[in-house]
Write a protein that binds this DNA or RNA. Structure first.
Lengths: 215, 215
DNA sequence: CTTGACTGGTACGGTACGTTACCGTACCTA
DNA sequence: TAGGTACGGTAACGTACCGTACCAGTCAAG
């Protein structure tokens, strides 16, 4: 009791009015930027969604770019959190890779990450720090984690590989295949769970054993 | 007029003046759209580059969207022409795949295709027919070609595979790996020819034989 | 209650946008 | 050489943009 500030009963404790307003704005503005892009979105569009006045936005985010950066940062943090390094201790190489493929697929095919991908690819050249943030906490992190795993198995002699970093990049690319691109382009709706599982298994099998039959 | 220079521009015999003007506009406007995106580009920006007046643009392309569509279509046609189906007769599976990987890499890492990729990913939802055009004459065509090849080798028993279409998609994804994404995002300059060749060989080897050592 | 910061609503400044119109000129063809 | 067409230059038009200013209302804290 002594530690907590008294706030309005309708709001969660520990958050000032300003903080909750900030979060409301980010939450309401994100879909607008996701749909129309940076240049195609106007502050008035956002006001129409979230209510209030521009004064609040400009005193909180400083500029349209500031709001955009906050939205990308916030969404990247939340939507890509599932890729944060975990134990991923692998006795079994097959199971480890399969679980990795599933997790990566789940994350990158989520609507938020798909929208982030479109946005960051579009504006990456104009917002280099956002591009770096997205890459480092998304595809880059996934590749680094996988590379770490591959190196462990490499030391045990379970796999034979010249360039673990390169192979990790290529495996991540296998998961981000043409189906991902078609979905990004709006040419395909999200594939079914069965298709996704099937593809993950195929990718792992090819990555491990290739397509050439063993005799 | 500052300089009374003639705008003859040494026209080719088979092209009318209108055609050459159209091509000049497309050629000059493309980098502007590539750099600033659709919403971020103004007709005045293009006029500043190509000269002339807006009347010419609007009588030729009808609208800003018409000009944009013409630019994407034209550049896709030219830059992706190298992926047009050829013989690709493969006695040797390894060599065929390696050549395919090289070709795909060359095309997708070219500055024009990289710029097209950014643009189409950004505007794909708003210009579905352009997204379809790009995909069908780029990554989709590549995958279809590869699938055809895989099926031929499959019939001969040279490879063992459940889903050739899926495998083709995944191989194309392998080539379009994290290095491609980093380059798209502006986080990396184009990799050297040696690195690209190395990666192509690694991808083909993994695709054919996997990373698990054969005993 | 008083105080002070934050918020909503609205209007405004200055600029830029896409698009159309006008008009004189350069060009191609007949 | 004559005529029709395309082009260049400029300007206009209505709208929309980002960012700021002003004022009244709201809320939390002392």
């Amino acid at each position: 009791m002594a530690a907590g500030k008294k706030t309005t009963a309708t709001e969660k404790p520990g958050k000032s009015r300003q903080e909750t307003r900030r979060e409301e704005i980010i939450k309401a503005a994100a879909p607008v930027f996701f749909e129309h892009g940076f240049a195609g979105t106007s502050i008035d569009d956002i006001i129409a969604k979230v209510g209030g006045s521009k004064r609040t936005i400009y005193s909180e985010f400083g500029s349209k770019e500031g709001l955009f950066a906050a939205i990308v940062t916030d969404n990247a943090r939340h939507a890509l959190a599932a890729l944060a390094p975990e134990a991923m201790a692998g006795r079994n190489l097959d199971a480890t890779l399969l679980e990795f493929a599933r997790e990566l697929n789940r994350v990158q095919m989520s609507p938020t990450v798909l929208a982030l991908y479109r946005l960051v690819v579009a504006e990456g050249v104009r917002f280099p720090e956002l591009a770096k943030l997205f890459y480092d906490s998304g595809p880059g992190l996934a590749s680094a984690r996988l590379s770490q795993v591959l190196k462990e198995f490499l030391e045990r002699g379970d796999i034979a590989l010249d360039d673990p970093d390169g192979a990790a990049d290529e495996f991540v690319g296998m998961i981000r295949d043409n189906r991902h691109l078609k979905t990004v382009l709006g040419l395909m709706s999200r594939p079914s769970a069965e298709d996704t599982e099937q593809r993950a298994q195929t990718a792992v099998r090819i990555f491990l054993d290739g397509v050439r039959p063993r005799r």
